[in-house]
Amino acid sequence: MALLEIKGLHAAVDGREILKGIDLTVNAGETHAIMGLNGSGKSTLANVLAGRDAYEVTGGSVIYDGKDLLELEPEERACEGLFLAFQYPVEIPGVNNTYFLKAALNAKRKYHGQPELTAVEFLGLVKEKLKILHIDQSLLNRPVNEGFSGGEKKRNEIFQMAVLNPKLAILDETDSGLDIDAIRAVADGVNALRSPERATIVVTHYQRLLNYIVPDFVHVLLHGEIVASGGKELALKLEKEGYAWLEQDLAGAAR
């Protein structure tokens, strides 16, 4: 059974339809890349999967790990192992990063009937992840994302992902605005999670990230629809030729 099965998904914002029938199947063990021009609906798809209520699902279904994903609250989705690394992580002044992460991890453990981690266990885990991701410890004592640079915010997302250890990770343009070292660190974080039970969806503009996170499948999302799917060579073609040929196909199909 697929880990994620999206069928005919339609979603609207403020009454305007953004997703116009998405079909996507992701099996455990796979890595999928979603590419596409700005404004084509990639973040909308990611947010709908995470459960943001500003987006209204107007049709279709999403089965995740055998459950009707759309019926779950955002926190239930998180506890069931879904993780979204946001394109624009929000700043939360006054909430300490470590406190927040511990609360998140313990919420997840509680959901699965596991005991809370002790302070020592938690700190051990956190330090190990920081080291793998080459992130400075000072990040721990800062308020969540407050005053972080763009790159620091992205790293913090990956750090949270590493600590929460999700079954399905969705990375929404986590590579944008990062230098090559940071991209490598992000890729290391993602690749460390790779396993036959897990899957990753990488939303990106650039083929460059896909040199480090090699996808099994590449999909192109345009105007709210997946207009092409293929292997990693599709990303190379897009890099060379852009999206114009797909726009033409789409116009041709409409005629």
């Binding site: 459960g51 209520d53 926190e75 506890c79 946001f86 939360i92 991890l105 959901y111």
Partner: peptide, 16 residues
């Protein structure tokens, strides 16, 4: 609401 959603997306209940 975007802060509330961010925390919920990490597993905290809405109340928390």
């Amino acid at each position: 609401p975007s802060q509330v959603f961010y925390l919920r997306s990490r597993g905290l209940s809405e109340g928390e």
